[in-house]
């Protein structure tokens, strides 16, 4: 009596393997938030029978770490997280089992065994597709050109800590527009470097409104196509799991 409580029973089994996982957020599930996803994932891992490693203590949590999730409302083909397991598992089998256990629209694309090096360090830039379903490509292109030829484009967004003003222009590494006029349809592809605070596609839209008075009639459909290391020489976003795959393949 009166002693400090400690959790009963043996300590949790140690983690023996770390997996890096890429997933897509598609269709109507683009409206799921990062918190919504983490709840769904924890349950899916249990349904799939993945032998998760847990933290110690009174409130054990499965060991999962999330990296740089897309905002609520944005679709994505390239979201990442890592999990740790207490038993070695086959990444391909986990991919299939976990995908089956998640709702349609949250789709597991790739699972690899993690090699040394932090995943977060490799997520340096993203490519985004922004689809305007009610705008002329020429109008969008003109607005984008105005933004790209500006020195700076400051926007203000409200964070938990209060409003912050930051430059959008420097983070946008490239942007181009294609589309059609009948029916009216414009697609902007852009590469955005990950900065602090992160420049999100809606910040770019805010900047387009400020710089070029561009205001789409309906909100565009935003999709992250990829994220990864920024390859300066080839001016492209590389695959963040390539280093892990290379080792697995040897």
């Amino acid at each position: 009596m009166g002693r400090q409580r400690t959790p009963e029973g043996p300590p949790p089994a140690p983690a023996v393997q770390k997996l890096r996982i890429r997933y897509a957020k598609r269709g109507r599930l683009r409206f799921s938030s990062t918190r919504d996803f983490s709840r769904a994932l924890e349950r899916a891992l249990r349904r799939a029978g993945v032998p998760m490693a847990y933290s110690a203590g009174f409130h054990p949590h499965p060991k999962i770490s999330y990296a740089n999730g897309a905002q609520t409302g944005a679709a994505s083909e390239a979201e990442y997280f890592e999990i740790s397991t207490t038993v070695r598992v086959d990444p391909d089998k986990v991919r299939a089992a976990l995908d089956a256990a998640l709702p349609d629209g949250l789709d597991i694309v790739e699972v690899v065994e993690a090699q040394p090096g932090a995943l977060a360090d490799r997520l340096q830039a993203s490519t985004w597709r922004v689809e305007f379903r009610t705008e002329e490509p020429g109008v969008v292109a003109a607005a984008v050109e105005a933004l790209m030829s500006a020195e700076r484009a400051e926007v203000t967004r409200t964070f938990k800590s209060g409003p912050k003003t930051f430059d959008v222009r420097a983070a946008v590494l490239s942007a181009d527009v294609s589309g059609a006029t009948d029916p009216v349809y414009a697609i902007m592809h852009m590469v955005v470097r990950h900065t602090t605070p992160a420049v999100r596609p809606d910040d770019v839209l805010t900047a387009l409104r400020a710089v070029a008075h561009f205001e789409p009639l309906t909100p565009p459909l935003v999709t992250r196509l990829s994220q990864g290391p920024w390859d300066d020489a080839r001016a492209r976003v590389a695959d963040p799991l390539a280093a892990d795959e290379a080792v697995a393949g040897t």
């Binding site: 249990r46 029978g49 993945v50 397991t85 038993v87 070695r88 086959d90 089992a97």
Partner: peptide
């Protein structure tokens, strides 16, 4: 039960 260990078939 599920969740108590790897489901058969997930092992490496």
């Amino acid at each position: 039960v599920v969740g108590g260990g790897p489901r058969p078939g997930l092992e490496a």
